[in-house]
Design a protein around this nucleic acid. Structure first.
Lengths: 164, 164
DNA sequence: GTCCCGGTACTCGGATACTCACTGTCCGAGTACGTTCGG
DNA sequence: CCGAACGTACTCGGACAGTGAGTATCCGAGTACCGGGAC
């Protein structure tokens, strides 16, 4: 059970984009191309685009083609949770899927399931743990991450990512 | 991000083994062969052995070869947590591994990392969420699972798994 | 009758192929700017 | 001088190979029971 490496990429990419928002309500934030972000983090550009597309489909980012195009936040950073980002790139299928193996083989309950009719207790516990994980991630927004950065970092990021 | 399907197998297998413990202190519980368990749940026997071996290495089960051999609980069911079982079969490496991509590429901090010297805030949040997941699983023991079964199920399991 | 010995059947344990998601790369579609030509 | 059309450069978007963990299967090593024979 491991999250794909691209999860780290998009989390950092969204954090970087959030540092570019000028704070004005009407201003949607500067657009940065995937090539810029890829060079900034030293990751393959073509693959990063593929991941950022997932965020666009999820409504987290908005993309624009052509010169001066690129990706930008589609919503204020305070309204984007880490859970949304992770689910956008990794899918929102549960870790543990109950295949009801207790209903198969010799242990299967005969014709009408008189016992074991409720949901599997094991699956219920696993679902609870997973809910705790998701709840913890949904409690943190991108704005929280940006605010926790050491002072000076957003300024530096802005400078490095500003289109030359 | 998905747990391997074998996780379900071993969770149910351990639960089944826990239902066989006769409750006596000295009695270590009846041994059941992997073939019995595999037939009980309708899963491939050879592969199930491989997974149960992981539990043996983790000290959760004990194995005995030869006739009347098989697997049995190495500890009382109340001292085996779901987290132990999951970690035994899936490994205990974290979901999210921070590769410090912020330290690579153009965005890398020059020579001595004056800023960003602390651990990555994103990684910290992901670690918190993962800790919540593990904490939730470590709070449930196999004995809890057995107790939550509908009445009559342990008796039925004992009967089906008793060596013919 | 008792003990010892060999055979057999059953079990775990490890080594060997196969499949699919994640990773990485490529080329095509679309857009905004800069240039050029005509009025 | 002003406007419009064209070309170019840059961007995203989707389609095509490579790799590792998980899945599935097989055969070998080891052990306890069962039967037969000798004492």
């Amino acid at each position: 059970m491991k999250l794909p490496e691209s999860t780290e990429w998009v989390l950092h990419a969204v954090t970087a984009l959030a540092q570019l928002v000028p704070g004005e309500a009407g201003q949607p934030g500067q657009a940065v191309s995937a090539g810029q972000l890829a060079e900034h983090y030293g990751v393959p550009a073509g693959y990063l685009v593929k991941q950022l597309q997932s965020l666009v489909r999820a409504g987290i980012l908005s993309a624009a083609t052509g010169p001066h195009g690129g990706f930008r936040l589609a919503r204020p950073a305070g309204q984007v949770t880490m859970l949304e980002i992770v689910e956008a790139v990794d899918g929102m299928s549960p870790f543990y899927t109950c295949n009801e193996i207790r209903q198969r083989g010799r242990g299967a309950v005969p014709v009408p399931p008189d016992v074991c009719v409720t949901t599997c207790g094991i699956a219920a516990r696993m679902a609870e743990a997973e809910a705790a994980w998701r709840q913890s991630l949904s409690a943190v927004t991108v704005a929280d991450i940006v605010e926790s950065l050491p002072p000076g970092v957003p300024e530096r990021t802005r400078q490095l990512l500003s289109r030359a």
